[in-house]
Design a protein around this nucleic acid. Structure first.
Lengths: 341, 341
DNA sequence: GTCATAATTCGAAACGCTTTGGCTTGGTGG
DNA sequence: CCACCAAGCCAAAGCGTTTCGAATTATGAC
């Protein structure tokens, strides 16, 4: 069932039917009611492709996911972000299209997305310092919103980010307040912007309290269980092990916990651990009481908001660059305690 | 730059240009070379929407993700599956469109996907026993492939699945061989088809060796860390705790590990644990030696193959229903050992 | 040289919708 | 009674492709 057929059954012109359905004012209320009713009865849905061709908008948003040897973006955080963004898209009648491509093809993929008219805008994931995609997308002319920030980017751009620096600063201060002086940082890969900021927050807090950051107590790795384990283990095996750890993700935190337990250390008593908790749906930080003390910020909510920002940008392309900085909560759980003498 | 413009600069008709680019034989080799060259120089890409309108195919595949109170499908397994499928799509020039919708809207979403012509086919995730989507999609007439199976479905359908029954049977046998008799099962939600099959494999193996399955040693929950913890803890707190556990996922396995460690039990010595390992990219089962003994099967590979099957189905709609049953490997890790007397 | 045949190329319709501009109709004010 | 206006509707021109059928030109056989 298409427009023309529907119009014929109603004995109206396609123009009028289109307008009636589209909510345009110049159609008689009674006529509109007839049309709407018939459309429902015949289960009519306008063909998306045709609309897109006629209007020039694609009513779709793109997410390109580079697959790389180095840093795997298809991670749990990504999944929850997508779920959040997807909710917003569905409600707004937008499609979400995902391109999984080798990272060497990333630029080409964005160009194609534009030149083929596949999407009206894109979300940029996992920005690095001085991320080249910002210049690229600006150049191509696709509306985009960045999830995170890219230190050193010269051009203005829209972003939504957690205040990573502040979060890790507070976490560090919290540990310092508990008497900890040797604190390890198990960070994500530090070419990622968020990891840089976290590290800054960490060292800033230490320095502010007169503790000299010890480079050997800072690890920077992919945030997997095993790398968290490895990093924690390496630190704990030293002659002067840290008494506390700050870990950049729940998953590496679980690895760190395993390392501690391997050494017979009990979390919260023998060693303190703070993680960053993205509130992933299947990795809750405990049911009632949080198992880890954590800096908490829902990545799913970030996804929702990022999508809103993008849709808004698409609707009003000339709006001034919008930024949103989400503050992480500090949640006190069972994994921290005063320094063990 | 569009077809018409390109044709004009070449002093050819759009027809010929289209054919030259489309690889049709009836165009002079020399002309084709000119066209191809010009297309590259002008950075021409045919507009996807227009192609779709003209051909009737959308060159896109849909994944609909219901968000439900009960069972969250946006889970880590899903992310890796998507990544695998996405690779295949990109290579084949297909787009992947994802719809995140409230589960109450699922049927409507599929109908729209069809009537709006958004996709050429869909992948069905997380089938339950007697999954209603199979009848629905057959009725709607969208080509689809199911990741998993739906026991009790009356209609024929394409699927790719891990041999869950066999995998859990082998895991159980392995534990029995190690002398374990009281074995707990921490399964996923048992309205999910895969969970039913796993349970069957488990009980079949027990019965075959003359061990009567104990219903109180079987838990069925969402596969999160905390539910794994809770289930394991409940079993271990009994007066007659199991000496071994089989756990349906890495994540709940980690929860189970935590429960064991809380009780001072060391994995592989005091208690044996086997998990199912989907080979998630950020949750590797150890770096070199597997930490958990596991039944292993890459969900990413399943995604790749599912996508291939679907594209094949789209290309040749009348091909006979294809099924693929992937066998899981049994990987011996450090979490199992002979029964502790 | 002629004519059938093959090799190329082209014109135009079609895909399903939106949108511009125009046409009727009936009502209003002078 | 007429000019004018608003409301309501429609015809047709796109949007950027593909593709059918026809037209043109080149090729070869006779």
């Amino acid at each position: 069932m298409n427009l023309k057929e529907l119009a014929r059954t109603l004995d109206l012109s396609p123009t009028t039917v289109s307008r009636a359905l589209g909510g345009y004012p110049e159609v008689n209320a009674e006529t509109r009611a007839r049309v709407v009713d018939a459309a429902r009865r015949h289960n009519y849905r306008p063909n998306t492709r045709a609309i897109q061709l006629a209007t020039g908008r694609s009513m779709a948003v793109g997410h390109v996911i580079p697959i790389a040897a180095r840093h795997e973006i298809v991670n749990p955080i990504f999944a929850d972000f997508i779920a959040g963004a997807g909710e917003t898209y569905s409600r707004a009648g937008y499609d979400m299209v995902m391109s999984v491509v080798p990272d060497t093809d990333e630029a080409r993929t964005y160009r194609e997305l534009k030149s083929r008219g596949t999407v009206d805008g894109v979300i940029v994931h996992g920005p690095t310092a001085k991320d080249p995609r910002i210049a690229l997308l600006t150049d191509i002319g696709i509306p985009f919103v960045v999830h995170g920030r890219a230190t050193g980017a010269e051009l203005p751009y829209r972003w939504i980010d957690v205040n990573n620096r502040r979060a890790f600063q507070r976490a560090t201060e919290f540990l310092l307040d508990l008497g900890h002086r040797r604190i390890g940082l198990i960070n994500g890969l530090e070419f990622m912007d968020f990891a840089i900021r976290r590290r800054t927050g960490f060292t800033d807090a230490l320095i502010a309290r007169g503790v000299t950051p010890d480079p050997t107590l800072m690890a920077s790795e992919e945030m997997t269980e095993s790398s968290g384990y490895r990093a924690a283990r390496a630190m704990l095996d030293r002659p002067d092990p840290p008494t506390a750890l700050i870990v950049s993700s729940m998953i590496s935190g679980i690895g760190a916990r395993r390392a501690a337990q391997d050494r017979g250390l009990m979390l919260g008593r023998d060693i303190s651990v703070i993680i960053h908790d993205d509130e992933l749906s299947y990795l809750k930080n405990g049911d009632t009481v949080p198992m880890f003390t954590a800096t908490r910020s829902s990545v799913r909510e970030a996804g929702r908001q990022a999508a809103e920002m993008l849709l808004h940008l698409i609707a009003t392309p000339d709006s001034p660059p919008e930024h949103r900085l989400l503050e992480a909560e500090l949640i006190i759980g069972q994994s921290t305690g005063p320094r063990h003498p």
